[in-house]
Amino acid sequence: MSNQIYARVRQNANYGILVKKRGRLAFILSALVLVSYYGFMMVVAFAPSLLGRPLGEGMTLTIGAPIGAAIIIVSWLLTGVYSHFANGEFEELTENLIRETAE
């Protein structure tokens, strides 16, 4: 692609909107995953007895196992949230950008 096309894309209002919305969503979702994961790791490192308690009387499964599994599941769900926006709103903005730039 030529530099002219790149310049036209960057000057298009839809490009700015797309970059801003996609970046904000990516930051929020990444922060949620990182905070939950590193928060869990901090509890494991500095207060392991909190997660080491059994789920019930006489049980060997601890509280930490379902919490760890929930963090993984939430990460998958957040990936689905990003895919929803990427295939919806972001796709529409990209198509508008391509259509307007090609003119």
Results as ranks from 00 to 15, higher is better:
M1Y: 13
S2W: 02
Q4P: 06
Q4Y: 02
Q4A: 14
I5V: 14
Y6S: 12
Y6F: 12
A7G: 06
A7I: 06
A7C: 07
A7K: 11
R8T: 09
R8I: 05
R10C: 03
Q11D: 13
N12K: 08
N12E: 12
N12D: 15
N12H: 15
N12A: 12
A13L: 06
A13D: 04
Y15W: 15
G16M: 09
G16P: 08
L18R: 00
V19F: 09
K20T: 09
K21L: 14
K21N: 10
R22N: 05
R22L: 10
R24E: 11
L25E: 01
F27P: 05
F27S: 08
L29M: 11
L29C: 08
S30N: 13
S30E: 06
L32W: 03
L32A: 08
V33F: 14
L34I: 08
L34T: 00
S36T: 03
S36F: 10
S36V: 02
Y38H: 07
G39D: 01
G39S: 01
G39T: 00
F40L: 15
F40N: 00
F40R: 00
M41L: 13
M41E: 14
M42Y: 13
M42T: 14
V43Y: 02
V43S: 02
V44W: 04
V44G: 00
V44L: 14
A45D: 08
A45F: 08
A45W: 11
A47R: 13
A47M: 14
A47E: 08
P48S: 12
P48E: 04
L50A: 11
L50H: 05
L51P: 08
G52S: 13
R53E: 12
R53M: 15
P54S: 15
P54H: 05
G58S: 09
M59K: 02
M59Y: 00
M59R: 03
T60I: 08
T60L: 13
T60Y: 08
T60P: 07
L61S: 04
L61A: 12
T62P: 11
T62F: 06
I63A: 03
G64C: 14
G64V: 03
G64T: 01
A65R: 05
I67S: 01
A69C: 08
A69G: 04
A69V: 15
A70C: 13
A70V: 03
I71R: 00
I71P: 12
I72S: 01
I73A: 15
V74C: 09
S75W: 14
L77I: 14
L77N: 01
L78Q: 13
L78Y: 04
T79H: 10
T79Y: 14
V81T: 04
V81L: 11
Y82Q: 09
S83P: 06
S83T: 06
H84L: 09
H84W: 11
F85Q: 04
A86W: 03
N87R: 09
E89W: 06
E89K: 07
E92H: 02
E92Y: 03
L93E: 00
T94D: 07
E95W: 01
N96Y: 01
N96K: 11
L97C: 05
L97N: 09
L97F: 01
L97A: 06
L97E: 09
E100R: 04
